[in-house]
């Protein structure tokens, strides 16, 4: 006997002066293998064609669909309803500009963070593309990829106490990026230069080590370890 799921979904369009923030209730019959992507699509198709949410890959790799699922940040596309109770509340990710309903502007936040932290490999010179590439230690390449797996979904920001108090906090996503570039031999920046980017309370010294970021990271990145190493290196710069 399939369950009937009750969804409490946040609805609000901030650009419509007549819109009041509120919660709407929908009933959906559960199907086997149902994800929140399937359930929300069904709600839109059968009950509420105007409901806004963001899914792109629906496979857990693009980072579009992060939302609060029963209060906890997570990727909706890969969350199976069978792992949730019969009543499910869905709210937009906090810490980001609301577009409408469950849709938030993570892209704008991430681009601003990347610009501020200069989150790209700083090359000393361009290479000759005809020549054999520079060798790289295989273990180091894998270690860089490990940190490169962040999908900029915003879960770590939504779960961060500092980010909720300080809108200018770069979040675990930002610090993990600098940890990634710092590890990468192709980036020729020094710790003194990294210190200029994150050596304050909106950066590495703002982290209160609450561990929320690591708890919710869908890619299970070692965020706390990265932040700890980075903090130690930056503290050395500050001395």
């Amino acid at each position: 006997m399939p369950r009937t799921l009750t969804f409490h979904v946040f609805r609000h369009n901030p650009r419509d002066p007549g819109s009041e923030p509120g919660v709407r209730e929908y009933q959906v019959e559960e199907a086997s293998g149902m994800t929140l992507f399937i359930a929300l699509t069904r709600i839109r198709e059968e009950h509420d064609p105007g409901l806004s949410f963001d899914f792109v890959c629906r496979a857990g790799v693009c980072g579009s669909c992060a939302m609060l699922i029963n209060g906890r940040p997570g990727l909706a596309c890969r969350t199976l309803t069978s792992e949730l109770p019969g009543t499910i509340s869905l709210f937009p990710l906090p810490g980001f500009e609301l577009i409408a309903d469950l849709s938030v502007n993570t892209g704008k936040w991430m681009r601003a963070m990347s610009e501020r932290l200069q989150a790209w490999v700083h090359l000393s010179c361009e290479v000759n593309l005809n020549e054999i590439e520079a060798a790289m230690d295989p273990d180091l390449a894998e270690a860089v990829y490990e940190l490169d797996r962040c999908i900029e979904c915003g879960c770590c920001v939504a779960a961060c106490g500092t980010a909720l108090m300080r809108p200018d906090f770069v979040g675990a996503v930002g610090m993990n990026k600098l940890a990634r570039f710092r590890l990468d031999p192709r980036d020729d920046r020094s710790d003194a230069e990294y210190y200029q980017l994150i050596g304050d309370d909106s950066g590495i010294f703002g982290c209160m080590s609450l561990l929320g970021c690591q708890d919710v990271c869908p890619k299970e990145l070692s965020l706390q370890t990265q932040i700890a190493y980075l903090r130690r290196a930056m503290a050395r710069q500050g001395l």
Binding site: V121, L123, I132, E133, A141
Partner: peptide, 17 residues
Amino acid sequence: PKAIRELAAWGVAWNRV
């Protein structure tokens, strides 16, 4: 081959031999 070498220089962490 030029494209992959360019991406290698720009930061893609290709798996290595």
